[in-house]
Design a protein around this nucleic acid. Structure first.
Lengths: 185, 185
DNA sequence: GAAAACAAACCTACCAAATGGTATGTTCAA
DNA sequence: TTGAACATACCATTTGGTAGGTTTGTTTTC
């Protein structure tokens, strides 16, 4: 461990850097506008190096997506574990996770998620599966129409924050959040 | 008019066809993935012909976007004129317009709208302006937080319908719509 | 325990295809 | 005959991907 800095090749760190930068470019220029060269440059690797970690552009994109989905999963699980009330627990965590992301606006790597979903059929499938699985898992506590609507509203607010040029003002966001969390009780 | 079929060149018809097909490709492959050649082929014109109508790719995309925004405007105005109750009139029309669109799922040209908004800064601005203008116009009747949430929820449902692989089932959509329209009263 | 063998982690050089755009015709309508 | 509505041919550039080499780290063998 103490000699970690001596190692000249740290593939996991490079891989992580590639994922992060790819996510950033995905947000800034869309997925199709994302170029392997740019990502490689940003991560201080050659294109060949990148293609060693991810054998194709599609593979890179899917990896970014899965990585983000994994983080979302973790965050929601964490929020749920802090919530003592069973009914609507998932919905509240879902809303909070999205508002947390919303605060960062278009700069957040999460923005790539949405663009990806609509552009790419394969990613749409991944997202669809993820959502279906979580809904099935929490059907008993979060199945009611009111909670469903609350989640949809959170999605809508998140979307609006992306499309709105400067993002929704912070105080307005806070108000919307409270309103929504009330609905989810 | 009776000689319409004799005319060998019908620029307006060609222009319309180009817009429609461009919208379709925009949905299927994203905006950056949209190619002039593909659009031209689909509209049975050469690339040169397309570039005569729209001098650049960006010009084509903006034209598609403005076209769609115009249609949305018309539809909302039509729905509003049929609604006798003042309070929340715009919100109800907004919701209905989006559900109308939602029925067609990802095949609808409207799906291009969202993708565009997030990918392209210029289009984001156009959308933002449109939304701001309409909200300002109906501030007196549609300014309440509850109505705002209802609109956001409509956005979210529309988004979910796009990302969900096969779209939301029709009967579930109907239920959500009724639920939302109730909120908007 | 060193040397050799091997595999993983890169880099360099290159290419075929696609793409946006230009320049220059040609046909059609007024 | 003039300008709009196309078509043809072409180009410069970009981009994803391949082929093959080189360096670094690990494992095996003697």
């Amino acid at each position: 461990m103490s000699e970690a800095h001596r190692r000249e090749k740290q593939p996991e760190q490079v891989r992580r850097s590639l994922l992060d930068h790819a996510a950033r470019f995905g947000v800034e220029q869309g997925l199709a506008g994302l170029t392997l060269q740019a990502v490689a440059d940003a991560a201080s690797v050659t294109k060949g190096g990148l293609l060693h970690h991810f054998p194709s552009k599609q593979a890179l994109i899917e990896a970014v997506f899965k990585d983000l989905l994994g983080k979302l999963d973790e965050e929601i699980d964490r929020l749920m574990s802090e919530d003592p009330v069973e009914h609507g627990r998932f919905t509240r965590a879902y809303i909070d996770a999205f508002f947390q992301v919303t605060r960062d606006g278009a700069k957040s790597p999460w923005a790539a998620l949405s663009i990806s979903c609509m552009t790419d059929a394969r990613l749409r499938e991944l997202w669809s599966d993820w959502m279906r699985e979580r809904l099935a898992r929490h059907a008993a506590t979060d199945g009611s129409p009111a909670l469903k609507l609350a989640r949809y509203a959170a999605d809508g607010i998140w979307l609006a924050n992306l499309t709105e040029a400067d993002g929704i003002p912070a105080n307005e966001l806070a108000g919307l959040r409270d309103h929504l969390q009330n609905l989810a009780k």
